[in-house]
Design a protein around this nucleic acid. Structure first.
Lengths: 327, 327
DNA sequence: ATGAAAGCGCTAACAC
DNA sequence: GTGTTAGCGCTTTCAT
């Protein structure tokens, strides 16, 4: 593999001249430029970007921390980031963690070691303060939830989003409402739970343990929830569900048993995934694609003013109720 | 940011000793090791991995070329790669191309510039020969289709997969069968089309232009196909469909119009995505997760014997008919 | 307009 | 066991 010194020698110029040509600098005479370009073409030269990275102290790569890419929530988010990254000339490094703390630390280590210039945190098990301690090594952005005082965030107001969903359910006359969520312990889950509980409290309904389900991430778990619901003596008339796929799993299983939605059970989804539209699922749109784009834009801004680490950026992505036919 | 020289000075040793400690080499006295580790901890030192990359000539990162991550086919594939990458100590760099040739060239350039050690090609518009010309700069693996004589491949026999699907359709008495695919021009599409056409020929049925649809990638396009089907005077009794999401879109739209599946229209999907199971879609399992893992494993093998570039690796992933209730 | 030379931070061959 | 030193391939002053 040819290097810049060989190019210089063969072209009869110095390495600096080659470097100038490489980087499109002015003040290189046309004939020398030609000579250099000829040799480069002849040797099929390409510069070793790692030397540039070492010199510049950055790599123009950013990491994306998430539990798994194979989930519509995250892949939609990453699609947005990826499109924005293209515009910004950045590359994305996938850091699948499965919510494992050590895996998260390994992702953070990438910024400490300067393999990536920054990290977008889409999911985490570690506390924000441990994450924030890497702030001095590179840019950090939280995507999806407000990370508090120390980390810039593009986020959804999860309380408001569930409040909106609950209000719609109540407006349709539902009072016996069940809840279906992903992780039990997570700040977004807690905010959603509060919104749910507060709404119930307002109408004087108790919260029934049996109607709240956790660790539901995918279609299968939705189907499973439905089966458990079916086995109950007293059932809710509506469910508010984190993630459209889970709601879709419930719809599908309901259909198998001849239950009608919303007559026998109303369903409120979350995220407004494409499948929600096709199946007519009433849901809450979190504008994931735009949120992904904005997260990357924010990271870019953080990268741009490194010394100014005190000013924290925040951007709330508004959610939007999408009324269709399952409530 | 501290560097190895400062650590050495403060610990009262040479840089080589620090390097030895850093890399866990033997032959370092316990007390010096301690001294070095203390200083490292005190300065919160972390080595600059870019220097290592420059020195070693590799980065332990591999690129994944695909049109978009936000599609269940690709995200399932990448999930497998990502899990395997973790085991192998490699990182994944996302290269979303949207089938754009210049974007594909930019991805290939990453291997030429040594930013990544190799590239897994999950989709491409460029010809294989242009892609293969990058073989001398790094490892290349095709994932999903057989790339011919010059590039190692983990692949599906797309002909056989559709042949299997068609056989099943025929065995259920269908003769008027429509086709729904993604890109018109692509080697996998061509092989599937041959299988489809040959099966029709065998039973003496003509191929009807009106019953073949292209550029269907997602749920919405499935719904759209269904609407077009509905408007036809003469309709197929079954459709063989590339991608379960597309088939699901068709099912959903069929339901809206009161059509029953399979009585009014039988549906054969592809990929065996989770939603296929829940909706009872008959489909062909391509074992995408395993294919992703194997692709990464193969890339790893390519990386391991760089000088031995003539021997091409191949691994066919067998497909499997999953009979459920839509045919 | 061009070149010489000093690094970026690290590893490893070599000498002791 | 430990230190000295020569690079890895490039960019960028600073002279000229």
């Amino acid at each position: 593999m040819a290097n810049i010194r060989q190019i210089a020698k063969l072209a009869g110029v110095s390495v600096s001249t080659v470097s100038r040509v490489l980087n499109g600098h002015p003040y290189v005479s046309a004939d020398k430029r030609r000579a250099v370009e000829d040799v480069m073409a002849r040797l099929n030269y390409s510069r070793n970007i790692n030397a540039v990275h070492l010199l510049r102290g950055r790599t123009d790569m950013v990491g994306i921390m998430l539990p798994s890419i194979n989930h519509p929530y995250f892949s939609r988010l990453v699609e947005g980031m990826s499109d924005e990254a293209l515009d910004q000339g950045l590359r994305l490094v996938l850091c699948q963690t499965g919510y494992d703390e050590n895996e998260e630390r390994r992702a953070l280590a990438l910024v400490k070691e300067k393999q990536i210039d920054g990290l977008i945190v889409c999911s985490k098990s570690l506390g924000w303060s441990e994450i924030a301690s890497y702030r001095s090594y590179g840019a950090l952005v939280s995507c999806g939830e407000d990370a508090g005082e120390r980390i810039s965030s593009v986020y959804i107001d999860h309380y408001r989003s569930f409040e909106t969903g609950m209000r719609h359910l109540l407006s349709k006359g539902h009072r016996k409402i069940g809840l279906c969520m992903s992780r039990y312990v997570s700040s977004s889950s807690e905010r959603r739970r509060s919104a749910y509980l507060n709404a119930l409290r307002e109408i004087g309904e108790p919260c029934r343990e049996a109607w709240t389900f956790y660790d539901c991430y995918d279609i299968e778990s939705g189907a499973d929830v439905m089966r458990r619901l079916k086995a109950m003596a007293e059932r809710p008339t509506a469910m508010i569900v984190t993630g459209d796929q889970v709601a879709v799993g419930m719809m599908a299983e309901a259909g198998k048993h001849g239950w009608r939605v919303p007559e026998d059970l109303a369903l409120m989804g979350l995220d407004n995934q494409p499948i929600a539209e096709v199946l007519g699922l009433t849901t809450i749109d979190n504008h994931l694609y735009e949120m992904g784009r904005e997260a990357l834009r924010m990271l870019r801004a953080e990268l741009a003013d490194p010394d100014d680490g005190r000013k924290r950026r925040r951007l709330e992505i508004a959610c939007e109720l999408i009324v269709r036919s399952t409530v």
